[in-house]
Structure formats: structure tokens, C-alpha cells
């Protein structure tokens, strides 16, 4: 396949950053030459280990995710019966824990753990960035920082879903959806911490803030805390869980959060640019892809041969 200008630039930069040898460069370029122009054919035909083939998240990120989601769910679990303490299910729940005071204490303790996780995460990002910079391997496009390209990707992707594009756009390690989700979570967590601290220390906040602000601040925080929490819960349940558990292709579960690895199929479909980097950085992946491409001879293919059967038994071979 012929890479887009953008992908070509990105690949060159990656090889330069990795100080890829000329031989490896040639190998990568050969592989790209052998790829079908229609990437769909590629990700439809690779064979993936469902628990993941290619590295994506470090152990730190996985621990942070684990801590964040467990504290998040438990915070929701203890926060909702405090907020909706009128509801018929809330009072037995609170009594079960030992009264609303206990529920509130658990809630605050969990909040402290969540704040620790946030700090841990920021420290990881900072340290990771510094290390990558020192090694000369930092690439802004590979981070979660939103860029203009994400807007274009989103538009292109929507057009693909609508049927007016043949392929999904070439997206990087973090696609627009993940960036939205990441910053929504970061913003939401900050709002929760801020508003929660306003409940705990209303007097301190009032003395810090410019005079007159406290009148609105305190009540806006009281409004924000449950609203943000419910929004987060709904987003997690109906969007995030759908994306990582229920969506076709991810069902029954995407293993990345446990293994730190992403399947080849998923990487090529939604993170093609990162897959190019994988080819540079993972010789094993090059070997796999070479075998596959040689076996199927997909070079130059954009369309499936006319009349090829797609029945299950024929597929199985």
C-alpha cells in the first residue's frame, strides 16, 4: 500500500527516533509495500490473540485504572445512598454499613485513595514524558493531548459509519473517542475532588476565595457533586462499558486493562498509526505480518475477488 503523507512522516520520525537500522527500515518498507490498499482487508484477516498481541499500557497505567475504577464504583456505591437517602433502598443500605456516618466515612476514605491515584497518574505521565524526551523518542501525536487531527478523524469516522467513506481514518494510539473520554474523566474527577473538598472545608474555601464568591461557590459545588457523579456513572455504564465490553469486536471483554496488550485486529482498525510504530518497534510483529501477507498475497488488493464464498466452512481452512 501507499501510505498517506501523514502516515509516511510519522513512520519516518518513528524510525529516526528508534535509530532503526537500514536493514530494518527496508524490511518495514517492504511490508508496507505488501499491505493491501484497503486496510479493512488487513484487519479482517489478521489472527489475533483475544487477550492481546501488541503492547499498549504499562503496569503503572493498569494499576491506576484498577484503583480508579474500584474507587469510582465504591464511591458511587457509598455516595448514592447519601445523596438519595430519601429513597426506600438507601436507608437499609446505610444501616447495613452502620449508619449514614459510616457510609460518609467510607466515602471520604475512598476519595483519598482516588486522589492518590490521580497524583500517581500525573507523576507517571510526567516521568514517562521526561524519559521519552531524554531518549529522544517523544512524539506528541502518540500522547493523549487533543489535536486538530482528532476533529478531522471524528468527522471521517462518522462519515465511515454513515457509509460515505470506504475506510476508517488512520488514527493514532489514542483516538478521538479515547481523548474525549480521558479528558471527561480528568475533568470529572477534578470537579468531584474540588466539590468534595468544598463539603469538607467550607470555611477554608470561603476564606481563600475572593469575597462574595462563597455565596455561589458552595451551592454550585453542592449542585456539581451529585450531577457530575451521576453523569460519570451513566457515561461509564452506557458508553465506556459498551465500548470495552459489549461492542462487537470487543465482546465479551477487551483485555487491555489486565494484560496491557491490544489485539492486532483492534490496533489496525482503530489505531493504524500506532500499528506502524509497532512494526518499527516489534520485530516479532514484522515477522507475523510478513507470513500473513505472503500467504494471502494481499498486495494491491482493494476489493475481494468476485464470487469468493464467505461461508463459514470455507473460512475455516
Amino acid at each position: 500500500m501507499k501510505l498517506s503523507k501523514e502516515a509516511e512522516k510519522l513512520l519516518q520520525k518513528c524510525m529516526q527516533q528508534n535509530r532503526t537500522s537500514d536493514q530494518d527500515r527496508k524490511e518495514v518498507e517492504d511490508l508496507i509495500e505488501m499491505m493491501p490498499q484497503d486496510r479493512v482487508l488487513l484487519y479482517k484477516n489478521v489472527i489475533s490473540n483475544p487477550i492481546g498481541d501488541l503492547p499498549r499500557y504499562s503496569i503503572h497505567i493498569r494499576i491506576q485504572h484498577l484503583l480508579t475504577f474500584s474507587t469510582f464504583l465504591l464511591l458511587a456505591f457509598t455516595g448514592l445512598p447519601v445523596h438519595f437517602s430519601d429513597a426506600f433502598w438507601a436507608q437499609p443500605f446505610n444501616s447495613m454499613l452502620g449508619g449514614i456516618e459510616v457510609t460518609r466515612t467510607i466515602h471520604r476514605t475512598l476519595a483519598a485513595v482516588m486522589i492518590f491515584t490521580m497524583i500517581y497518574h500525573i507523576a507517571t505521565l510526567a516521568a514517562g514524558t521526561i524519559i521519552q524526551l531524554a531518549r529522544g523518542r517523544f512524539d506528541m501525536r502518540r500522547t493523549v493531548i487533543p489535536m486538530y487531527k482528532d476533529l478531522q478523524d471524528m468527522k471521517e469516522d462518522v462519515m465511515y459509519f454513515a457509509g460515505t467513506r470506504k475506510q476508517r481514518p488512520e488514527m493514532d494510539k489514542f483516538m478521538y473517542k479515547q481523548k474525549i473520554h480521558y479528558f471527561a474523566a480528568a475533568f470529572g474527577n477534578s470537579v468531584m475532588v474540588l466539590s468534595g473538598s468544598a463539603f469538607l472545608f467550607p470555611d477554608i474555601w470561603a476564606s481563600i476565595l475572593p469575597s462574595g464568591w462563597a455565596y455561589y461557590f458552595q451551592d454550585i459545588m453542592r449542585l456539581a457533586h451529585p450531577h457530575e457523579a451521576l453523569l460519570a456513572l451513566v457515561v461509564i455504564a452506557f458508553w465506556h462499558w459498551y465500548n470495552v465490553h459489549l461492542a462487537p469486536g470487543r465482546f465479551p471483554m477487551q483485555w487491555t486493562y489486565l494484560t496491557g496488550k491490544i489485539t492486532r485486529e483492534h490496533q489496525i482498525e482503530e489505531h493504524f498509526l500506532e500499528y506502524l510504530r509497532n512494526l518499527v518497534e516489534q520485530p516479532a510483529e514484522r515477522a507475523y505480518l510478513r507470513t500473513l501477507l505472503q500467504k494471502y498475497d494481499l498486495r494491491g488488493q482493494g476489493q475481494l475477488p468476485e464470487g469468493a464464498p464467505a461461508s463459514a466452512s470455507a473460512d475455516r481452512q
Binding site: 465490553h245 465479551p252 471483554m253 483485555w255
Partner: peptide, 10 residues
């Protein structure tokens, strides 16, 4: 077990 267990959980 892991995959369907977490699915049941969510």
C-alpha cells in the same frame, strides 16, 4: 471466567 465474570459484574 474472567471475561464473562467481569461482564456479569458490569
Amino acid at each position: 471466567w474472567i471475561a464473562y465474570g467481569s461482564l456479569a459484574f458490569i
